[in-house]
Design a protein around this nucleic acid. Structure first.
Length: 430
RNA sequence: GGAGAGGUGGCAGAGCUCGGUUUAAUGCACCUGACUUGAAAUCAGGCGUAGGUUCACACCUACCGGGGGUUCGAAUCCCUCCCUCUCCGCCA
């Protein structure tokens, strides 16, 4: 959510900045609503004030034992007028709110303008894709040769399409990856390991921006009654981790807060039917190790560089070739002002595929969540900045290892850094 | 699952029985000033969040777990949901 000031003063500049990411702001409609809002709000508050003082004098008269009947008559239609004004105000504010809530974050100045992923800018490359002297298989076939290591048929039987069962060495490799990532970030990069709920309420989803716009991408759990709190499965640990700051005021000295968590993530992938139907790339349930930072505004851009490097470190230690891409305005997420994607090389697809997305959300989420901090000696709290990134998506990392470390004999070499987590195992066979 | 007790500002804690000079008492913590060589103690003042009007000084509105209701008026009464605590039962 943007500061309401962006829509009152300098709305033209705001509209221009939003146009960079292809968002058309209806300046006229918004300005008209704002004029209405102001008039109605002033009128409502005046009525309110009037009612308060009259009620007060009724109370005073009563305590003096005077007859309050004439005073009551005087109040007359005030209540109805007030109620009508309140309803009107409510209506306008809801309209304003729904417009404002659907406006994405302003892109940072250095973000390249563009329409889609084709306009993203490659920043750097790490490693070189291995040359194989045999015909490479994709991860589905590699795992299949390892005793049905990835069993999509069984996943579909238990649940539905886009669910998987992992077995044996592949399942263990998957577990080793999460352990390795968590240890790296908590021991080397200064993130506090955190365990969080996998079901969250709507206030949390609204805080990070999944609601109100993107509810169809989530799995929802119904409550027993309509009044009960509705819960949803988290699409990413970003939601619970970032919402830890909701309605909090931090001391300046407590920042930055750096958190990491390993969770499953659940996505209904609405609108992606028919894409990546084969394999582990796009599942309804996948594991991810998430990185979240809460920082002072002036530190957030530097923090994004560091957070991205922390995610890159995982790929480097796993010896997986990847490239780092700066997303263009058209490809960024709703709440982001700047995003780097890390794309890992997948020989089975002969291409780079996204394995991590690291974003600076600026104060966009913080404003929704009222996540603030107080500078030393300052009276007023300020909104902090939030950042998040995958460090990394575990399922896709597993895909990358199966494909990049496959051997001619069908076995898969275990990257050196993972061996301690695999009981010293050097390769997965049969 | 059953029974009961609760949720009030940074913290503690009154107000709820009986709705109205309570724009939430009081204490602690915190900030500023006075006194002091400095500190402590003492004294005086300040001390929440959000929104709005205004060039400004100021003023106004909302907020006592969330939402709704009754009323001229709700922290206080009613409904509902959430959360915390105690006891019983069940359970990994």
């Amino acid at each position: 959510m943007l500061d309401a000031k962006h829509f009152r003063e300098g709305i033209e500049e705001t509209a221009a900045a939003l146009l960079r990411r292809g968002f058309q702001l209806d300046v006229e409609a918004l300005t008209a609503l704002e004029v209405q809002r102001k008039e109605i709000q002033v009128r409502t508050e005046t009525l309110q004030s009037e009612r308060n003082s009259r009620s007060k004098s009724i109370g005073q008269a009563k305590s003096r034992g005077e007859d309050i009947a004439p005073l009551l008559a005087e109040v007359g239609s005030l209540g109805e007028q007030l109620e009508a004004a309140k309803a009107e105000l409510n209506q306008v504010q809801q309209e304003l709110q729904s417009v404002i809530a659907s406006v994405p974050n302003l892109p940072a100045a250095e973000v390249p303008e563009g329409a889609d992923e084709n306009d993203n800018v490659e920043i750097s490359k790490f490693g070189t894709p291995k040359a194989f002297d045999f015909k490479v298989k994709d991860h589905v076939d590699v795992a299949e040769a390892l005793n049905h290591g990835l069993d999509f048929a069984q996943g579909a039987k238990l649940t539905a399409a886009r669910f998987v069962v992992m077995k044996g060495g592949v399942a263990r490799l998957h577990r080793a990856l999460t352990q390795f990532m968590l240890d790296l970030h908590s021991e080397q990069h200064g993130y506090a390991e955190t365990y969080v709920p996998y079901l969250v309420n709507h206030a949390s989803l609204h805080g990070t921006g999944q609601l109100p716009k993107f509810g169809k991408d989530l799995f929802h759990v119904e409550g027993e009654s309509q009044d009960q709190v509705a819960l949803s499965l988290i699409p990413t640990a970003e939601v619970p981790l970032t919402n830890l700051a909701r309605d909090e005021i931090f001391e300046e000295s407590e920042l930055p807060v750096k958190l990491t968590a390993h969770t499953p993530c659940f996505r209904s992938e609405a609108g992606s039917h028919g894409r990546d139907t084969r394999g582990l790339i796009r599942q309804h349930q996948f594991d991810k190790v998430e990185l979240v930072q809460l920082v002072k505004p002036e530190d957030s851009m530097q923090a994004l560089e560091e957070l991205t490097e922390h995610a890159e470190k995982v790929l480097q230690l796993l010896e997986l070739p990847y490239r780092k891409v700066l997303l263009c305005t058209g490809d960024m997420g709703f709440g982001a002002c700047k995003t780097y994607d890390l794309e890992v090389w997948l020989p089975g697809q002969d291409t780079y595929r996204e394995i991590s997305s690291c974003s600076n959300m600026g104060d966009f989420q913080a404003r929704r969540m009222q996540a603030r901090f107080r500078r030393k000696g300052a009276k007023k709290p300020e909104l902090l900045h939030t950042l998040n990134g995958s460090g990394l998506a575990v399922g896709r990392t597993l895909v990358a290892i199966l494909e990049n470390f496959q051997q001619a004999d069908g076995s898969v070499l275990v990257p050196g850094v993972l061996r301690p987590y695999m009981g010293g195992l050097e390769r997965i066979e049969r």
